[in-house]
């Protein structure tokens, strides 16, 4: 049997709670909702806990141990020794940090400049625009491993078509990914080839939302195209650019598959393309040094979080 009554005051609610606690079968909708809310949230919370929080906590825990060979073997806590080992490693860790920063900055700056240029070109409708946009999106749709293998074949120093084409214009054959000095720039260019379309799409979306009046007013006042771009469009687009930089920058920092597919373990014979991600993977799967690998990953995570926080603050400041 179900009976419904109306509560008229807070005191009444307290009274209801007391009444229920003394075993009367009354429960408010609020109480039922509150409990149901937790029950309904439980799967999502469990998923987040399992998929995000647990690995993070597990990795941090592992980074404080001397885990080697197997993570479930008897490991001992070594405090911050792994962090000290990583931070004092000038042969692999710091060069990997340098390459990670170089790769990210180089690739993202180029992608932003090219993406903005393409977005400006495609801002006004033109004949065949849909075809151009579709073609531009093609690299974005392919997986990085497939792209890596494709470019390996194109850039193969002996059998690749790139050197064949360079020969037509009198440029001597290049080693590209086979060279210690050319590997990282080549990888950056491949990344630019793949991800510039994404920057174009993001910036184009930002451009289409800009009001036309300020630019019209500047045109009436006699500003040329470059002046309108620098003094009107860029300042108005700053928030979009910063957002695109955060999104693409974080993604570029984490690049792994392209580098591993083209350069293999260690990022090449002289570790010439070894970024932090590739280094951590090698420590885990080639060396089975799980403790040190976890410490590197924790440092890498902190590094990414710091960059995101700085860029977010700049974005917010810019927006305000």
């Amino acid at each position: 049997m179900t009976t419904t009554t109306t509560r008229t005051s807070t005191a009444g609610a307290a009274s209801t709670r007391r009444t229920r606690s003394s075993d009367t079968p009354f429960v408010t909708f609020e109480q039922a909702n509150r409990r149901l809310k937790w029950a309904l949230l439980a799967p999502a919370l469990g998923f987040v806990g399992l998929m995000i929080a647990f690995p993070l906590v597990f990795t941090i825990n592992l980074s404080l141990t001397d885990a080697f060979g197997a993570v479930n073997a008897g490991n001992s806590y070594v405090g911050l020794q792994n962090f000290a080992d990583a931070l004092t490693d000038t042969r692999r860790f710091w060069p990997a940090v340098g390459r990670t920063v170089t790769f990210t900055l180089g690739a993202v700056v180029l992608e932003t400049v090219l993406g903005l240029a393409l977005a400006m070109l495609m801002r006004k409708a033109f004949r065949g625009m849909e075809i151009v946009r579709t073609i531009l999106m093609v690299p974005l749709l392919a997986t990085p491993v497939a792209i890596g293998i494709l470019w390996m074949l194109i850039l193969d120093p002996t059998n690749g078509i790139a050197n064949h084409l360079l020969g037509f214009v009198g440029i001597p054959p290049q080693e590209f990914l086979g060279s210690v000095s050319q590997s990282l720039p080549t990888l950056m260019l491949i990344d630019v080839w793949q991800w510039t379309p994404m920057m174009t799409v993001l910036l184009l979306a930002g451009l289409t939302t800009l009001p036309e009046e300020p630019e019209e007013a500047a045109r009436v006042d006699g500003a040329n195209a470059w002046q309108r771009f620098v003094h009107i469009i860029l300042p108005m687009l700053r928030t979009t650019i910063l957002t695109a930089l955060v999104l693409r920058g974080v993604d570029a920092l984490k690049t792994f598959d392209l580098i591993y597919a083209t350069k293999g373990p260690g990022g090449g014979s002289d570790f010439e393309a070894e970024t932090l991600n590739v280094y951590a993977y090698g420590l885990t799967f080639d060396y089975q040094e799980y403790g040190l690998a976890s410490a590197v990953l924790v440092l890498f995570t902190l590094f990414i979080v710091a960059i995101v926080v700085v860029l977010r603050r700049r974005t917010e400041r810019s927006a305000s």
Partner: peptide, 12 residues
């Protein structure tokens, strides 16, 4: 505000 009174077995 409403109170809901239900038998124990019905509180699925």
């Amino acid at each position: 505000m409403t109170h809901v009174l239900r038998p124990r077995a019905a509180r699925g």
